[in-house]
């Protein structure tokens, strides 16, 4: 069965991409879950549509670039405003996300052309090219560096921003860098994972790991294992059953989440 799995070239690319994307998502996911930013990354995914639309209006040839730029601006703006405003962050994020999605949809669906972009909703990991895999490797390296240097700071700021600031940690800068990083990764992966499911891939492995971890080391280890595991198993099943790959990966990740949820409660009890 395995030899059949690898008999075609495109599958090698896909497996490689999954081996890069899933650990990357796991790392980011742990930070997102710790910082309670699940909704934030979801909103970023939706802003990808607007990014493409804005790119089209401005006549940018490579919509990847307009998408990333827009996501970065969007992320920084969100960070800024949610720091200033009195109402709760999730309301602000929701307002921003719905507004940008509506703008994106209205521009893209003009003249009934939305179907051209509908592949973004579900994603298509099978069409990944070698060049795009290289991009992923670069982002992976950057994320790794950020994670190694900033994880403790992020954790400290997560417990108490005021305390972290008083210890001389540049909380705002780190938060902004993190937001930009999430923005880049989410928008770049949209093409392969799809707007509807990208957040699931970010959040589920980390959330499952959190169910059963008592310390930070376990938390990361499990998130990593769950993420890579669901990626590979999902791809395997989708390959042989003719089901879209993204949703299958999310189904496996969800299964892990529910099992760990029960396990975690057992361990406590």
């Amino acid at each position: 069965m395995l030899s059949e799995f690898f008999q075609y070239d495109f599958m090698k690319n896909v497996v490689l991409a999954i081996l890069i994307i899933t650990p990357l998502f796991a790392l980011l996911g742990t930070m997102i879950v710790t910082r309670k930013m699940a909704f934030f990354s979801d909103a970023l995914g939706h802003s990808a549509l607007t990014g493409i639309a804005v790119g089209l209006v401005c006549g940018v040839e490579d919509t990847d670039i307009s998408m990333i730029l827009f996501a970065i601006v969007f992320a920084l703006l969100l960070n800024y405003i949610s720091g200033k405003m009195a109402s709760s962050t999730d309301t602000i994020i929701s307002v921003f996300a719905s507004c940008s999605t509506a703008i994106g949809l209205s521009i893209l669906s003009k003249g009934g052309n939305f179907s051209k972009y509908s592949s973004l909703l579900v994603g298509d990991i099978l069409s990944i090219t070698t060049k795009e895999i290289l991009y992923l490797v670069v982002i992976f390296a950057v994320t790794l560096v950020f994670w190694i240097f900033a994880y403790n700071f992020m954790e400290a700021a997560g417990i108490s921003r005021t305390l972290a600031k008083s210890k001389g940690i540049p909380v705002t800068v780190i938060e902004n860098i993190f937001a930009v990083l999430v923005a880049c990764i989410v928008t770049l992966s949209i093409k392969w994972v799809g707007i509807l499911l990208i957040n699931a891939l970010l959040i589920l492995p980390a959330a499952a790991a959190k169910n059963i971890s008592v310390n930070v080391r376990d938390y990361h280890l499990f998130a990593l294992i769950f993420s890579v595991f669901s990626g590979l198993v999902g791809l395997f099943v989708s390959y042989f059953t003719n089901v879209a790959t993204g949703p299958m990966i999310v189904i496996v990740a969800s299964a892990i989440y529910f099992v760990t949820f029960l396990l975690g409660r057992k361990m406590e009890g």
């Binding site: 599958m11 179907s115 051209k116 592949s119 298509d124 099978l126 089901v243």
Partner: peptide, 8 residues
């Protein structure tokens, strides 16, 4: 028009 190829 908008069909996406599946692995199969």
């Amino acid at each position: 028009h908008d069909y996406q190829l599946t692995p199969a």
